[in-house]
Design a protein around this nucleic acid. Structure first.
Length: 183
DNA sequence: TGAGTGATTGACT
DNA sequence: GTCAATCACTCAT
């Protein structure tokens, strides 16, 4: 599963204010029409990138306050994406702190809405190519299999029990959902 | 045309 | 532990 492979890679954003980067420590898979919890379950103009070619970003705005970023993983014409839920900050921490307004490193990127704010990602990045600057994914070191845990998805009502959430076990930057993670 | 819901976070009791 | 903020989109008049 692609969500599993995404862990350990870096998400890099080269913005005019400076470069920020983080290691992906938590990701969640969403499919298309077969997944009741996915935005692709009901097609919307905003989520159109989910049907696009793989390697592109799908950024959406939710709850009136927060952005979330997805990586499109399926081929063109097939809906499918991986939601990036948490990052471990590795570069541009001062800039992240300024954008987030918090000092603690664990609070900078430990959540979907938090990491987009820390990285400076907005709706303007919807549909951009993640294989080229200014916003892209870089290959990170391989992750030992025993460090990767999975659990049911967080924050969704439908199909929440599907074990499509992957995260780095014991990493302090992983978000804690309303439900306790089932290792 | 209007009410309800949501892949969330942060502030307040 | 509870609740508000606030926007895109769906569903019901």
């Amino acid at each position: 599963m692609v969500a599993r492979q995404l862990l350990g890679h870096w998400l890099v954003h080269e913005s005019p204010e400076g470069v920020t980067a983080g290691r992906i420590v938590e990701a969640e898979a969403y499919l298309g029409p077969n997944d009741p919890a996915s935005h692709a379950y009901r097609r919307t103009p905003r989520s159109r990138p989910m049907w696009g070619p793989p390697g592109y970003a799908y950024v959406y705005f939710t709850y009136g306050n927060h952005y979330c970023i997805n990586v499109v993983t399926e081929s063109e014409g097939v809906a499918g994406a991986v939601l990036i839920r948490a990052l471990e900050p590795v570069a541009g921490l001062p800039l992240m702190r300024r954008r987030r307004g918090v000092e603690r490193e664990e609070l900078l990127c430990s959540g979907p809405g938090r990491l987009t704010q820390a990285m400076g990602i907005t709706g303007a990045h919807n549909g951009v190519d993640l294989c080229a600057p200014p916003l892209y994914i870089a290959r990170g070191g391989l992750l030992p299999g025993e460090q990767v845990a999975s659990s049911g998805r967080i924050g969704v009502v439908r199909a929440a029990g599907w074990p499509w959430r992957f995260f780095v076990a014991g990493n302090p930057h992983v978000s804690r959902g309303p439900k306790e993670a089932v290792r």
